[in-house]
Amino acid sequence: MLTKRIIPCLDVKEGRVVKGIQFLNLVDAGDPVELARFYDKAGADELVFLDISASHEGRDTMVEVVERVAAELAIPFTVGGGINKLEDMKRVLRAGADKVSVNTAAILRPELISEGSDYFGAQCIVVAIDAKYDEELGSWRVYTHGGRKPTQWEVTEWAQEAVKRGAGEILLTSMDKDGEKSGFNLALTKAVSEAVTVPVIASGGAGNADHFYDAFTEGKADAGLAASIFHYKDTSIGELKSELQKLGVSVR
């Protein structure tokens, strides 16, 4: 039986892992390679590296870190941040990443998704979406530039468009919940998961095992992503998985 995946996310800035509360206050939380090794051993199903400095300042993703991580890791990992063109995808995937995630660049130029998908296959292309509830829209609006700029896209419409263009997976972050540790945004996760045919990774708001349980059941997510609860050792992946297993969720 296919298991639900637990994915620690490492937000990387200038070669160090950081995690901001609602994208703002950045706190240094360790070395990416060290953490990758730790999470692999701890039972993480995948890892995501997001170069958060890159999308702000147009900086290139650190290929060197990717190479070092790839040499150590026997689980898949995704790299995002600063992926603006096919060349950027090639560079990161050739350095050893298994998938790339695109966010702002895909909104600005949706062809980027199909270019990557045609070249590497859909399984390599993750479309990351940052969404925030919008009263006027009566739904969740997609934001770009690390959550700073609103777009015209309603979240399920954009997710469907991304999949139509060749996205193999959606990494969905709730900006309302991010960093709050009060649980994933279940309504948002469910809406997107039901709207697309590809796996959806829920992100933003994880605080404990119940939150993951809810995301996998009510939210219909295929995977759950978190950063701070793992980095600061609030919860170990082993403990989280055994809790989930007790609740009847199939995990590795």
Partner: peptide
């Protein structure tokens, strides 16, 4: 096919850890 014999839709690709 993306649909079981009973007509339940499932996700394609088959992505993740399976035993």
């Amino acid at each position: 096919s993306g649909v079981t014999a009973e007509g339940k839709a499932y996700k394609v690709p088959h992505m993740g850890w399976n035993n």
